[in-house]
């Protein structure tokens, strides 16, 4: 059997790999930390979710300043949508308390499959929304820097985006993930916000969303110090290294590799959920 030294070291290495892959592929390391902890380290899924939320807060807060410097993130859009994600996150965390590990594992697997598919292809949404008067009143329309000067953009279909953000928040609270993929889909595809603005704003929102559910997990005793310390420090180190060497890697190939890993983990999670192997 492994003692705490070995456990800490191996977990640190695993979380580092997750953080690295997450940063390089742009999908975030959160989605692989729960499968890593439950499938490889046989940690109870509730502890795994708590530790994963900690990793998500650390990596997104650590990366935030890089995104702001580029001037893409939109604080008004972020704050407005954070009302949806925090309500969803608190609801999701409450629901998770009463769910069996098997049910959580199956839902987790399905979300992983969805993430693996969207990482490879572009989802399609109807294109006929009117300009939102609400967005204008709330001063969400803005501009972002480009080579040819500031590019202005408008925000559409706020209510569609708000609803999808509530779902993203719920999944974040239920599964301990950042839900970055769904957040970007809500902004980029549904609200027609430019991709770069969507990803930068999403990164800003992830930490707040995760903090909303982390409080509830803490009160329920799901945040274990020995698991969370290695996962937090490992994921953070991975994300920092990943962000530094991002340009040198071929992003497209990485995304493909990562989506295959996610897909395999998804099948494994669903299988373990159905056969009740996770307790």
């Amino acid at each position: 059997m492994l003692d705490y030294f070995g456990f800490t070291l191996l977990l640190f290495a695993g979380a580092l790999a997750a953080g690295l892959l997450g940063a390089l592929s742009g999908l975030g390391g959160g989605v692989v930390i729960v499968p890593l902890l439950t499938l490889v380290f046989h940690v109870d899924i509730h502890y795994a979710i708590g530790a994963s939320l900690i990793a998500v807060i650390a990596t997104s807060s650590g990366a935030a300043s890089a995104f702001v410097k580029e001037g893409y993130s939109n604080i008004r859009i972020a704050m407005f949508l954070e009302m949806a994600t925090t309500i969803g996150a608190i609801a999701g965390a409450f629901v998770a308390v009463y769910m069996s590990p098997s049910t959580i594992a199956i839902i987790f697997g399905c979300v992983l499959v969805y993430s693996a598919i969207t990482a490879r292809s572009e989802p399609k949404f109807p294109d006929n929304f009117k300009k939102s008067l609400f967005a204008e009143r709330l001063k969400m329309n803005s501009h972002y820097p480009s080579i040819s000067g500031p590019q202005s953009y408008s925000v559409y279909n706020i209510f569609g985006g708000f609803s999808l953000m509530t779902v993203a928040g719920m999944l974040s609270g239920l599964l301990g993930i950042g839900s970055g993929v769904i957040k970007v889909v809500a902004m980029d595809k549904v609200m027609k916000i430019p991709f770069k603005v969507s990803t930068a704003t999403s990164n800003f929102m992830i930490g707040v969303t995760a903090a909303a559910s982390a409080g509830i997990y803490l009160h329920r005793g799901y945040i274990d110090p020995a698991i969370s310390m290695s996962v937090m420090l490992g994921a953070l180190a991975g994300a920092v290294i990943g962000a530094r060497y991002m340009v040198r890697f071929r992003v497209k190939m990485l995304r493909n590799i990562f989506s295959i890993i996610i897909f395999v983990l998804a099948i494994e999670m669903i299988y373990n959920g159905i056969t009740h192997k996770l307790g």
Binding site: M1, L2, D3, Y4, F5, F7, T8, F41, H42, V43, D44, H46, Y47, L218, R220, G221, Y222, I223, D224, P225, A226, I227, S228, M229, S230, M232, L233, G279
Partner: peptide
């Protein structure tokens, strides 16, 4: 966290963890 990690491992590094079943953290955490 790192400081706490070092203190914790120095004191309990050789004992064995068991996280297979959820029991919850003690009320002090």
């Amino acid at each position: 966290v790192l400081t706490g990690c070092i203190i914790f491992l120095a004191r309990h590094g050789t004992s064995q963890p068991d996280y297979g079943k959820f029991v919850g953290e003690p009320s002090e955490f």
